[in-house]
């Protein structure tokens, strides 16, 4: 039941803070309320900062999955403005 399309997927491995959050934020802003975005983040700093800021912006983190290379896949639903 994965509704994520190609356009709603961001691979931010190797992208540093705060640009990883900026990319995520811009992408979410393009999307309509309720749509979901899949983001892949490095462990460490990225995982400390991005989820927190995404949540503070009013979006919803639906799931967090660890990938084999120790990065994380987050499913984010766009919140209301």
């Amino acid at each position: 039941m994965d509704q994520t399309t190609e356009e709603n997927r961001l691979d931010l491995r190797g992208v540093l803070c705060p640009m990883n959050f900026v990319h995520t934020k811009l992408k979410l802003e393009e999307m309509a309320e309720g749509q979901t975005l899949e983001v892949i983040l490095d462990d460490g700093e990225a995982m400390r900062n991005v989820p927190r800021n995404v949540k503070a912006d009013g979006h919803h983190i639906l799931s967090v999955h660890k990938l084999p290379d120790n990065s994380y896949k987050l499913l984010i639903r766009r919140g209301t403005d």
């Binding site: 462990d43 400390r48 989820p51 967090v64």
Partner: peptide, 10 residues
């Protein structure tokens, strides 16, 4: 709790 471990990481 979904056991996502985000809190532990943070």
């Amino acid at each position: 709790c979904t056991g996502c471990e985000l809190c532990v990481k943070n």
